[in-house]
């Protein structure tokens, strides 16, 4: 069951990569093309593995910031990866779909990003490695105006960066 879910997510991530050219859809590190090359999605220590094989994002129901079962699975693996790859920090971006006012969606995105941050901290990731930001409805990944797109835009994306967070 878990295996099936993972496969579906992997396909989803590839589809995303194919149609998006900004960092709000992809992680900061693009996936390599070779199957067994270091830094490729098959290299478990690579950001590409984090972004694509584990999945860098979780999705939310309309107006909600509660983590779904699938979301918990992805975030559990994100936490494990972050614990094993301590040279990375992350900014968690919270996003909303376009149905809603600008201000409310900023606050909603903040809730979503925070839900992910809290989960990762609960699973042992050091709080000072995680920052949150909300983009509200400003950076949709998918641009159609129906639920097919909205469901992908209601997301929190864990964006990896190399090095410690400076304050």
């Amino acid at each position: 069951m878990k295996h099936i879910a993972m496969t579906a997510l992997f396909v989803g991530a590839l589809a995303v990569s194919a149609c998006s050219n900004d960092r709000f859809g992809n992680g900061r590190f693009g996936g390599g093309s070779g199957d067994f090359v270091a830094g490729s999605p098959s290299d478990p220590r690579s950001p590409a593995y984090f972004n694509q094989t584990i999945g860098d994002r979780v999705l939310f129901a309309v107006d909600q910031s509660t983590l779904s079962q699938e979301g918990v699975q992805v975030l559990t693996q994100q936490a494990t990866w972050l614990m094993e790859n301590t040279s990375y920090t992350a900014v968690i971006e919270g996003h909303a779909d376009e149905q809603g006012t600008r201000e409310y969606n900023l606050a909603l995105g903040a809730r979503r990003a925070s839900a992910v941050q809290n989960f990762l901290i609960d699973r042992g990731v050091a709080p000072n490695r995680l920052q949150t930001v909300s983009y509200g409805k400003e950076r949709p990944l998918e641009i159609c105006s129906d639920e097919l797109c909205y469901s992908k835009n209601r997301r929190a994306v864990t964006v990896l960066a190399a090095g410690a967070i400076t304050s």
Binding site: S65, L106, A107, A110, R112, S114
Partner: peptide, 9 residues
Amino acid sequence: YSLSAGGNT
């Protein structure tokens, strides 16, 4: 203004 901290606004 609004201030968000820890996900709460």
